[in-house]
Amino acid sequence: MTKSEGAILVLGFTGQALFFMRFLVQWLYSEKHRRSMIPVAFWYFSLGGSSLLLVYAIIRKDLVFIVGQSTGFSIYLRNLYLISRERKEKQAHAEKNQ
């Protein structure tokens, strides 16, 4: 195995680890609250894992993997945008009612 092949594998496994962390974080968060919930960290781990896996797929020239990860990447960004917008609206509403 060459040095660059090893680096590519590290990239891929790091992306997989981040992707796994989203499930772990979601499970622990839901257990803590005793109901199914998705914390914001889930979306950040999704975005991080998807980013690294997308780079990995591009390096490997795997079109199926590229399409799958780029679609997910867009969805994760959109969810983080919606969460941010909702927080700003809540904060503006709270400041208005003070």
Score class of each variant (00 low, 15 high):
G15L: 05
Q16N: 08
A17Q: 00
F23A: 08
F23W: 13
F23G: 15
L24R: 07
V25L: 12
Q26V: 09
Q26E: 09
W27K: 10
W27N: 04
W27Q: 07
L28A: 10
Y29S: 15
Y29D: 14
S30R: 08
S30K: 11
S30L: 05
E31G: 15
K32E: 12
K32N: 10
K32R: 14
H33L: 15
H33Y: 14
R34Y: 01
R34Q: 12
R35F: 04
S36P: 07
S36A: 15
I38C: 02
V40W: 04
W43K: 07
W43M: 05
Y44V: 10
S46H: 06
L47D: 01
G48M: 00
G48W: 01
G48H: 02
G48I: 04
S50P: 02
S51H: 02
L52M: 11
L52W: 01
L52F: 10
L53R: 10
V55E: 00
V55D: 01
Y56P: 04
A57L: 09
I58T: 05
R60M: 07
D62K: 09
L63Q: 02
F65C: 08
G68C: 12
Q69M: 10
Q69F: 06
S70W: 04
T71Y: 08
T71F: 15
G72R: 03
F73N: 12
S74M: 14
Y76H: 13
L77K: 03
L77V: 15
R78F: 11
N79G: 00
Y81E: 01
L82Y: 11
I83N: 02
E86N: 14
K88L: 03
K88W: 00
E89K: 12
Q91D: 00
A92L: 07
A92H: 02
H93T: 05
K96I: 00
N97M: 10
